[in-house]
Design a binder for these strands. Structure first.
Lengths: 236, 236
DNA sequence: TATAAAATCGACGTTTTATCGGAAAACATC
DNA sequence: GATGTTTTCCGATAAAACGTCGATTTTATA
């Protein structure tokens, strides 16, 4: 779709792999695109204010307890104006996490460029997931504690983005098999579940109880441990 | 609290450990006790009808989309009668999963009696978790996709029960260290997160996409893999 | 600065949640 | 089995939150 720019910044990997990787991340980071763009500057500001307000209120009260009126007030607009932007609270709730998710992907894409192996890239991905949650705790509260598992996110832009989150790991796990440090006889989907599950559980526990105290450290430890475990499965 | 019955059915383990284990599971399985008991039989039946109806409606529509009126209708009572039993929808939602959770603990307690080592008991626990979710999919949908992570379950009977779910694993992990097949230098809480996370992620994926097709098999595979991974950490 | 399109808002209708007082049913006592 | 008491149930109605619409203001553009 977009015009191809550069072939690859990390020469150690076969060029077809590089392009697959880059286009995957390109696609993922740019997925969240609003269907109807706002025409006026003021409106773009309003939209941003709504999203900011919604994030604060949702994170504070939880989605179900939050009132549209509160969010509108927090955004400094009237209730009916909010409805001009989002047709329901649910609609709004599912839109709020998108921009951060895109930002995470972008940030990861930039950082991963210097990593050449799938192993290093996976490690970075898991570590950055935990760290991004720590840095954006309100967003993480919303995403991990209220939205991620919800059934009703189906057929949503958000569901696609969450699935993308998984797709990246699946991609890297399969590359890990090719690189020889992930056991080829294990179901890759199971491996993905194991990796995501471990890290997410850590994040959820932190969001709920603020334990472990240092999420960055704990995330790194968990990620390194998980990958070491995978490597252990091979050398036997 | 309850009069002690039998000391222990599995003699291979030190008796103090056995009693700690049994009393943990006793306590856990019997925790969900309603504060105000209903006096009349009819009322007990009504309460059960409400819980059944709520489970069906919540699982079908999701908690936030469900209407109290629908649940009352499904239970064959008036809306105001429902409020006689639960002071809000949230209140009701948090009560629904409790009985099944207690049933799971009881069922596990019975099955675990024949297992002598912490390793076997942990394996059984993880396998049974996945299998119980498969058997009670409506309940699992509600618990895993809507309630488990929710912040607002705090200070609820339900939160205690969910924490109990974790406590059992923590107990077994610590025993695993004593038995020598879990690395003693790893943070036990991290290990718990890893185990729960992996299995839960599997269950969630199944609830959302019905993949893997055979959850029982996948659960067993995942559980065995996780435990094997822990064992691999020791022999090095 | 005139004009059309876009954005905002207050007023109002609808839906859902929750309360309350009294009727009906179950229970206890004689 | 009549009577008084407690428990359960429900219809009517209040309260709260959601969502719509037409009128008005603001913005972009020529």
């Amino acid at each position: 779709m977009a015009t191809k720019e550069v072939v690859g910044e990390s020469e150690q990997i076969a060029s077809d792999t590089v392009s697959a990787w880059d286009s995957l991340l390109q696609e993922i980071a740019h997925r969240p695109k609003r269907a109807t763009e706002r025409k006026q500057d003021r409106a773009k500001r309003t939209e941003q204010q709504i999203l900011n307000a919604a994030l604060r209120v949702f994170a504070r009260d939880g989605i179900s307890r939050s009132r549209i009126a509160d969010i509108a007030a927090e955004a400094g607009i009237s209730t009916s104006t909010l409805y001009e932007y989002y047709k329901s609270k649910e609609d709004l709730a599912y839109d709020v996490p998108l921009s951060h998710l895109a930002e995470f992907f972008e940030s990861y894409h930039a950082n991963a460029a210097s990593r050449t192996s799938a192993r290093e890239r996976l490690l970075l991905y898991l570590v950055m997931s935990a760290d991004y949650a720590r840095e954006h705790a309100e967003w993480a509260r919303l995403l991990y504690l209220e939205i991620w598992p919800s059934v009703f996110v189906s057929d949503t832009e958000l569901r696609h983005s969450i699935d993308d989150f998984t797709r990246v790991i699946l991609f890297l796990v399969k590359e890990g098999v090719a690189e020889g440090w992930v056991a080829p006889d294990r179901n890759p989907y199971e491996t993905v579940a194991l990796l995501i599950g471990g890290v997410n559980q850590l994040i959820i526990t932190w969001l709920l109880y603020r334990k472990p105290k240092n999420l960055t450290r704990a995330g790194t430890e968990m990620a390194e441990r998980l990958i070491a475990m995978l490597e252990n499965e091979v050398r036997r």
